[in-house]
């Protein structure tokens, strides 16, 4: 009969409509912002700088090597190196960024800065409700706003943060082993020349 397939189609639509009252699979919307969708762990929005411990200045991992600045495709990172140095997590004195700005209106969340950073200093945040009324300065974030603690990093990306901590701890252990003085030799053998630290 003419129109049979249209009626069959209407039956499909009716089924979806009726089932949307009982089945979560048919009703796929949520009442945002009262309800929020749980996001997977790997989700990424904009970068942030990680610092260890409580002091955002002393614990900042970034050593201003400017590799992320060079590799960023839209060039949204702006770094000015400091003139003095401060000790990093293994105790070695390193430069730090006097200025570290990211222009969020240009950043395209590609995560290349995170991949190329040799010091695990910059990671991806999950915060996306960043609307502001000032188009230019409101979206230009500075070092103070970017620096967030390692505890926060563990909260948003637990697996990744645990892996990073393990890697940094291994580096610290290697640095400590090298810094220990050479063990005393048995008296029969002549004393070896002191190895440079």
């Amino acid at each position: 009969m003419l129109g049979e397939a249209i009626l069959k189609g209407l039956a499909v639509t009716a089924k979806n409509f009726a089932l949307s009252y009982v089945s979560r699979a048919r009703l796929v919307t949520i009442q945002y912002p009262e309800e929020r969708q749980p996001l997977p762990e790997a989700t990424r929005q904009f970068p942030f700088l990680v610092y260890d411990g409580d002091d955002p200045h002393a614990g900042l991992r970034c050593v201003a090597c400017q590799i992320c600045e060079k590799e960023c495709p839209p060039q949204c990172i702006y770094i000015v190196k400091s003139k003095d140095k401060k000790p990093d997590h293994t105790g070695k004195p390193q430069f730090y960024p006097a200025i570290f700005d990211i222009d969020l209106s240009v950043c395209m969340s590609c995560q290349i800065c995170v991949e190329v950073c040799p010091f695990d200093a910059i990671k991806m945040d999950t915060e996306f409700e960043l609307s502001t009324t000032d188009r230019f300065h409101g979206l230009l974030v500075h070092k103070e706003q970017l620096a967030k603690s390692n505890a926060y990093y563990h909260k948003i990306h637990p697996t990744e943060a645990a892996a990073v901590d393990a890697r940094l701890a291994a580096e610290r252990a290697r640095a400590d082993a090298k810094a220990k003085p050479a063990p005393p030799t048995p008296p029969q053998k002549p004393a070896p020349a002191p190895t440079p630290a």
């Binding site: 996001l39 997977p40 790997a42 990424r44 991806m124």
Partner: peptide, 27 residues
């Protein structure tokens, strides 16, 4: 798209392939 977000971090602009493989493994 939820699957893409879980593996690469972004729903549409995934930036997942690299020269010589993929950026990271599936969680």
């Amino acid at each position: 798209l939820d699957l893409f977000e879980a593996i690469s971090g972004a729903r549409m602009m995934c930036n997942f392939m690299r020269f010589g493989g993929c950026r990271c493994d599936a969680p």
